[in-house]
């Protein structure tokens, strides 16, 4: 253990990929489904609306179709685990710190606004695409689902195509 507070190096990405693949395989072996993330947010939103505005939830189409969705879902428990696992890794590596991460030429305020807007897009898109990078792209590709490859190509293709216009945020 060194005295200086430099965070530890990240893992070799190919080793990291194999480990992530093993986690994915365990998920398949246990539950028959792979990993996911945005589905947990959907469960919380549906449960939240049903609690806060039960009258509205009974009348709006989407909530009626998803009334059996509850907080006691696989992805909600998995995402709680992600928070714990991320925290543990960050603690071991010396990376626990409150900060706003941003490109060198952008203000913290702009960064937070862009992050919020980005989240809104990702949240909306993940529901339309029936899953996000984890549930649709990664898990879908592992099972060779056509939809998984299509969604993966659309996500990364769009981000590459727009990178030039968003360069002030990152470069």
């Amino acid at each position: 253990m060194s005295k200086n507070r430099e965070p530890k190096k990240y893992m070799n990405p190919y080793l990291g990929g194999v480990l992530l693949g093993l986690v994915l395989i365990v998920a398949f072996w246990v539950s028959g489904r792979g990993l996911g993330a945005s589905g947990a947010v959907k469960s919380v939103v549906v449960a939240g609306v049903e609690t806060v505005a039960p009258q509205h939830a009974q009348n709006a189409v989407y909530y009626k179709q998803h009334s059996e969705d509850s907080l006691k879902s696989w992805l909600v428990f998995e995402m709680l685990g992600v928070l714990v696992g991320g925290f543990l890794s960050g603690a071991i590596a010396g990376r626990l710190k409150f900060s706003v991460e941003k490109g060198p030429h952008v203000s913290g305020k702009i960064r937070l606004i862009a992050a919020t807007v980005g989240g809104i897009f990702f949240g909306l898109g993940s529901q339309l695409g029936r899953g996000c990078t984890s549930g649709s792209a990664l898990t879908g590709m592992a099972v060779l689902s056509l939809g998984g490859f299509v969604t993966m190509a659309a996500i990364f293709g769009t981000a590459f195509a727009l990178a030039y216009f968003a360069r002030k945020l990152w470069l």
Partner: peptide, 27 residues
Amino acid sequence: GGGVIMGVGFILGGYCPGTSFCAASIG
């Protein structure tokens, strides 16, 4: 369509849902 919208979110926000929860967990 969902993928394209997610791509916009990725380049603006710098995260996807799973990674954002992971990043929030370290502050």
